[in-house]
Design a binder for these strands. Structure first.
Lengths: 263, 263
DNA sequence: CATTGCACTTGCATAATATGCAAACAGGTT
DNA sequence: AACCTGTTTGCATATTATGCAAGTGCAATG
């Protein structure tokens, strides 16, 4: 039909099959895949069989449903270990989660969203699922704000569009001018917060991580239920901690010194 | 050439390309892939381009080397969240690592090896890389032994072969009869240990996790440097802890009660 | 600065391979 | 037992991947 460039059609389709498996639909039948991608059932059936044979999918022979297989987890581990940011932040996040009892997270920006590279839950915020690999909007999260600190207003609009931003709660920042103010304030004090902006009952505090180029390459955050993180009383203390943690990781990533404001 | 069954050749090849990316060779050039799989360079080039376009690989345009991309991490997270054992053990392992300062791990058996589903390092055993998704031999690790507790001697030999087992140190159990004795002892006391058997300087203590079928489906372990884990003095204490942790996870997995010895 | 070498990409003709249809099959339900 | 839904498989066709060879880009060397 239409060949984008020099790519392999069946491989493309197989990879699209894999991306159909998400947190909200972790197991799929042949017909789900077929309709989800607009393929014939026979094609879907064969693609799934191939993916299963290589261990990328596993099939529950009773329910005839496919799920992601062990090979994916294996590759995921390799991919993580291949990220310098992961290396440099692993010990730090685990220590923070342990000492503060809160969630400790690291994320990078992936286009218009952030993607979690690390997610450790402290004793005060236990979860049974991991946020690893998941994405969240930039404008409604602490880490997302931290990841935008380098961008100019025009770059942000190019990225997020010039319309009002999607609201997740009544506290979500929806206008670009409000976002500008928020980011300016965050930049000056060196950390970002988010309270009830993505979901009610939660808050977080985040700081940017820079590498040897001086650019923001990742963000680290502490997160938890409002009562657990208790920002109204502990903001100063947690800010000091998160800024220091971010700097530790930045230095480990080769960051030398702050760039002067202009050139 | 030869079609195993009803599989898609190019997809098969593309998946093989992905599995070439390992912890020991996390970045590959086109020619590496071509020679590694016995493909022509042009074919390899096109497969890699397709994988990159879907975000499964990323290309460093300067060095022309490919690495695993974000899509892999994304899928890895989904795959983890899809594992009931991961769900049921996440809070427990993070708590153990935190309270004891040791490494806390969960693994499942994957044929002849174990694969880590969880790997949290406590303050006394910091590591910058994750074992998540990696594999280890069954006979030379505590979790591996725990994962074999259900198997009969003949099943073990069918799995591991009847020859002597590979030695990683001079302490590795290499004979099947020694392994039988070790497993019998472990089964009776309810936990497994491993001291200097996979690598010198390390030890661990592990216990089996069972689900509602009563079968061993996973294992949990505490691990660390010999001096950190200090098994010679703390074995009784750590055994109690790891057995209790394993039971907590087993119960969460639907395990009801121990099966009587003979039907 | 030009030259050589290496590694990767791309155009094109050929042949191998994926596809869709239809029939067979399996599992569960009425 | 018959039906319905969903899945697999055989087979002929044409779409699609492949290998070759030329082209391009980059870095090291003379």
């Amino acid at each position: 039909m239409n060949a984008e460039r020099s790519t392999n059609q069946s491989v493309d389709r197989a990879l699209s099959v894999l991306t159909l498996f998400t947190s909200t639909s972790p197991s799929l039948r042949v017909s789900d895949v077929a309709s989800g991608l607009g393929l014939g059932v026979s094609t879907a059936s064969r693609l799934l069989a191939t993916l299963e044979e290589s261990g990328f999918l596993r099939k529950d022979s009773k329910s005839q449903r496919y799920e992601l297989g062990q090979q994916i987890i294996s590759l995921g581990g390799v991919a993580l270990n291949n990220e310098p940011i992961y290396h440099n932040s692993r010990a730090v996040t685990q220590r923070l989660a342990w000492e503060l009892g809160l969630g400790a997270n690291v994320a990078v920006r992936q286009g218009t969203v952030l993607r979690y590279l690390q997610n450790v839950e402290g004793p005060m915020a236990p979860k049974s699922y991991t946020l690893l690999g998941q994405t969240n909007p930039l404008h409604a999260t602490g880490m997302g704000k931290a990841l935008m600190l380098d961008l100019s207003a025009s770059e942000r609009e190019a990225l997020l569009g010039s319309d009002d931003l999607p609201a997740y709660t009544t506290n979500t920042i929806v206008s670009h001018s409000d976002l500008e103010v928020e980011l300016q304030r965050s930049s000056e004090r060196g950390y970002c917060t988010e309270i009830n902006e993505l979901a009610l009952g939660r808050a977080c505090i985040a700081a940017p991580i820079r590498d040897f180029t001086g650019q923001v390459v990742a963000a680290i955050s502490l997160s938890g239920a409002l009562s657990a993180i208790n920002l109204s009383e502990r903001e100063t203390e947690l800010a000091r901690i998160i800024i220091e943690a971010a700097d530790t990781i930045s230095v480990a990533s080769g960051y030398l010194s702050p760039q002067p404001q202009h050139r």
